[in-house]
Nucleic acid binder design. Structure first.
Lengths: 359, 359
DNA sequence: TCGACGAACTGAAGCGCTTCAGATAACCTC
DNA sequence: GAGGTTATCTGAAGCGCTTCAGTTCGTCGA
């Protein structure tokens, strides 16, 4: 009779102690509903039987809450987390959500942009958080189909979802304007990803005409708005296909090899900018004397390299926190409000300076 | 009658199509159990009703599998992920596990080391993976209580759990021996965390006598075994209280300020070593001419700084992959085998060299 | 024509828990 | 001592799905 090999359940425990199942449940969830002494007895019996508390899944089914927020990323784990921005944002997100109550369920993407729809469909979560996904992916369609509350960070747009992002366009405009103010006229742009198609190389007008990532699009048009206002025409753009510094270096080598070479390089992320700076160093090009570089994000890296990066700061912690608050609100049954847009700021350091005289 | 505001369930759909619930379930899970044509009809009806597929929680309850592996970390998210080792390991882990079938549930820790026991108790996962936790934490007790399969990466030891780690002791020995071979006699040690108690400062013999993290203990004793063999007595040790480069710099400043100053600095992680190198630079101490530094992990950072770091390489991807395989095996019902220990390797770069003559 | 067979579908028993509307009894209050 | 409270505890109805043992029925071989 002690030969029952199955894990103990509430019933086992109830039978053992000689009370009803409801009472055992209360012992765990509503201590005020039974006498302290009976509760002790139940807990002791639980210990004795090796009962670790109510089964989380069954509890979820009964309560209709799973205590998890799913985060969908565009890329696989190690790529996603090589971007410190993600960690900071998620950290803020998770602590903003009633922290004891929600774990983070990571749905990392594959090469095709975003996690598989099947995974989205099977995710046990109360809210879905899409982090910088491309505009039209199977993952996002699955997200929409789930009918769960959705918070979008940065992109894509999704009807009915709460959104938080930064003023990418304004920030990019600031970056370009800063260089224009320093007299630069020969620009180049180093983009991360324009379409979720693994392409790496020069981006022609065709690709730039329909950018698949809202953030990239905003930044690009931010650059352009300043450049257009200054009467600067087409600017060579390289699509790195990722945010890795190595990819940035590769793109920079190509851009710097053009004739005439640019004196100003606009990079859509700090990582790319760091790679570009390395490439410049290898080519014997002085930064900022011969080449000014401006990054984006003001990531941790920006101050770790020499010269330190001029960049556009965004408040990642605020972004994560806001996302968390939005999630809370949706969970509480409120409608998603209008998109929240956080401000950006130009941080001037040593990687940018006046355009060289020769120009 | 179309005024039913609840989300549709299998029953709704079954009623709508006029088949049994089992059939609808089969339409999703066993397409071969019904005619293609009926299946189409069901799927179309699902679309029409906005039914996104079987509820994941209910499915989990019925199948007794949740399709998630929980990963417990020692610190909060942003700290945890500032260690690139985690990302790499987890990435390998998650792709090693039958990738379509398991999402990652992140149970990040708080200041007290490891996630709260309550969170562990409520985690909806099939396996628990403990990543470098301290030896005796409430979290680990909760882990043991859950009775789920457990995989431990690095530490702590846990009876019945599958374990994978690296030869920390051997690696540390290699590091110290390398410096001894270069004639160094005045050593200092920069440790990350020795006890999960937020302490930062010099570690006295008392603290070193009972190190709370198995990994730190192994590395420390690895250093010591080489030093002991060379007849070198007590060595000043600083406990950084984390792996942040800034913390490393702080410790290094103190260690380098001792009289006589060390010519060889053993750092338990690359991040600490980078911080130490920065501190040395600030103090006008040449590396490696006046001070040799050896890191640990061969992280991405090791080659990004100047001088590039001499360090101990461990194969993080292999570690993650192994953890994944162990998890699979446990899920398949096998017993945990003996701990798996992966090899380490000394990588010599420019941060270490011969001891200065003056010595 | 008959029995066997396979394809297609169904009934019902769970999976382990929460929760709400009582039931019971002890305790007050006036 | 009647009526009203309060503190404890219970019964039973779900939560939404999977799965196994059938049941039905058309078909096929002999």
């Amino acid at each position: 009779m002690p030969e029952d090999r199955r894990r103990p359940t509430l019933d086992t425990l109830a039978a053992e102690v000689g009370v009803s199942r409801a009472t055992v449940s209360n012992a765990y969830n509503r201590p005020d509903q039974l006498s302290e002494q009976l509760r002790e007895r139940i807990l002791r019996a639980a210990e004795r039987l090796g009962y670790a508390g109510p089964d989380p899944v069954a509890r979820s089914l009964a309560t209709q809450r799973c205590g998890a927020v799913a985060v969908l990323t565009d890329t696989n784990l190690s790529t996603a987390f090589s971007d410190p921005a993600l960690s900071i944002t998620l950290d803020a997100l998770s602590s903003a959500m009633d922290s004891e109550d929600h774990a983070l369920l990571l749905l990392a993407g594959s090469a095709e942009g975003g996690p598989s729809p099947e995974r989205v469909r099977r995710a046990q979560a109360d809210v879905l958080v899409a982090y910088s996904l491309a505009d039209d992916t199977p993952a996002m369609r699955a997200v929409a189909a789930r009918g769960l509350p959705v918070v979008v960070i940065d992109s894509p747009m999704l009807a009915g979802a709460a959104m938080v992002g930064i003023d990418d366009r304004g920030g990019a405009n600031l970056a370009a304007q800063h260089l224009l103010d320093h007299g630069h006229r020969r620009f180049a742009i180093l983009a991360d990803e324009i379409q979720p198609d693994q392409y790496r190389g020069p981006a022609d007008a065709g690709r730039l005409a329909k950018i698949g990532y809202r953030v990239s699009a905003e930044r690009f048009h931010g650059y352009r708005s300043a450049l257009d206002a200054a009467g600067i025409g087409e600017v060579r753009t390289w699509e790195a296909g990722g945010i890795d510094a190595t990819l940035g270096a590769r793109g920079a080598r190509w851009l710097l090899d053009q004739d005439p070479p640019p004196t100003a390089l606009l990079c859509m992320t700090d990582h790319l900018a760091v790679g570009a700076a390395q490439a410049a160093a290898e080519l014997g090009i002085q930064v900022p004397e011969e080449l000014s570089i401006v990054g984006f994000d003001d990531s941790w890296l920006a101050t770790q390299v020499a010269p330190r990066l001029t960049t556009i700061r965004q408040d990642l912690a605020a972004k994560g926190r806001t996302a968390g608050e939005l999630a809370q609100r949706l969970l509480a049954g409120h409608q998603a409000g209008p998109p929240v847009q956080l401000p950006t700021e130009l941080i001037i350091r040593e990687s940018s300076g006046p355009a060289p005289h020769a120009q």
